Simulated assay, not measured.
Amino acid sequence: MSRFEITLPYYGDVALMQAAVRSVLAQDGTDWRLTVVDDGREPGVPEWFEQLADPRVRYYRNERNLGVTGNFNRCVDLAEYEYLVLMGSDDLMHPDYLSVVRRAAGREPGAAMIQPGVQVIGSDGLPYDTLADRAKRRLYAPSGPERALLCGERLAVSLLRGNWLYFPSVCWRTEAVRRFGFRADLGVIQDLALVIDLLAAGESLATTPEVCFGYRRHAASESSATAYTGHRFEEAKRFFRETADRLAALGWPRASRVSRHHLSSRLHALALLPAAARHAGAPGVTAMLRHALR
């Protein structure tokens, strides 16, 4: 019986996408399927999948470009199995990714999200450490047992202080994601918005320490591009303010305060000021200062 729907919302570099696909095909077991949803028009891609001719792979090309969030929701709509992965098309699964996730799901069958261990890699595929990733590990990720079941306001506080999850590596319970979907009005922070929706609904997150996923971080990512113009931070400010009001009404005052201050997001804007000056000039610098200094 198939349990895991691995989806690949694809747009961009063909070679990186092909490497991501091959890393999925290296998974063990017969309880999974790969669904690729192509939101671009790169030549030769449909033909490559046709030649691949692997019964474990489904390939779709959107009739029109749906954008990042629209393609995420298209992947959710196509998912038919119990669990769902929304893998980045430039990321890499280690051969034991599904083995690790299977064991975690067996330990915590009620969890809506499973976060395994992640290795950050650069454009060249080699290990790559950044200030943001060090902050995730040392400042924001909860201390204590590496295998844990987390939920409620405590987890919301932790994630709103600094989102230490690696979204493309997370395995989700499909029914829980489908209940909310990704907000169409968000283009960068939609993953955190979905997690907060799930926590507010009483869902939980299981963590397990085994490193089994390569998360690629490079300047060509959507989040980096929008950060330099300040667009990412305008979106973030709106989300954090709305979420603060929502969590206050839910009776989560600590989480509401953390969201209203969104300190890590503001510090991130300050850290990117030199890059914004180089890539976006005065408008980008002004937008990020406005976000950082409120």
Results as ranks from 00 to 15, higher is better:
V120E: 12
R56I: 09
H218C: 11
A141C: 07
D133Q: 09
G106Q: 15
R217N: 12
E108C: 11
G122N: 08
G125Y: 05
L78T: 08
R154M: 04
H279P: 03
R134W: 06
H262L: 01
A79R: 04
D90I: 14
V211C: 06
R178N: 00
L273M: 15
M93R: 08
A184K: 10
V258K: 00
G44V: 14
H218E: 13
Y228D: 13
Y128Q: 09
C75H: 01
L263I: 11
M113E: 06
R183W: 06
A20D: 12
Q190K: 07
V211A: 06
F182S: 02
A200G: 12
T207A: 03
H279N: 13
P95L: 10
E63T: 14
K237A: 15
Q18Y: 09
D77V: 12
F180H: 12
Y11P: 02
G110T: 06
A201C: 06
V76Q: 02
M288V: 12
L8S: 03
L84A: 06
L270C: 15
L34Q: 03
A275W: 13
L273Y: 10
C171V: 13
Y166H: 08
Y10G: 00
F182T: 02
R33W: 05
Y59M: 04
W172D: 00
I6A: 02
V57R: 00
D185W: 02
T207I: 05
W172C: 00
A176F: 00
T207H: 01
M113Q: 04
L52T: 04
R173F: 00
L272D: 15
R216E: 12
I121K: 05
L289T: 08
L165T: 07
D133A: 11
L16N: 14
D38H: 08
L267V: 15
V14Y: 07
L92K: 08
E63L: 14
R138V: 13
E175I: 01
T30L: 11
L247W: 03
G88P: 08
R147T: 12
V170K: 00
G106M: 09
E242V: 04
T229C: 01
V85H: 10
S2Y: 07
A15W: 08
A249C: 05
D124H: 04
R266W: 04
T35V: 13
F233I: 07
P274L: 14
R103V: 07
S221E: 10
L205K: 02
V101Y: 04
A248R: 12
A292L: 09
G40D: 13
W48I: 13
A277K: 13
R134S: 11
V285Q: 01
Q115C: 06
V68E: 14
P9F: 01
D38Y: 05
A244T: 00
R246W: 11
Y128G: 05
R294I: 12
R64E: 15
C75S: 05
V100Y: 07
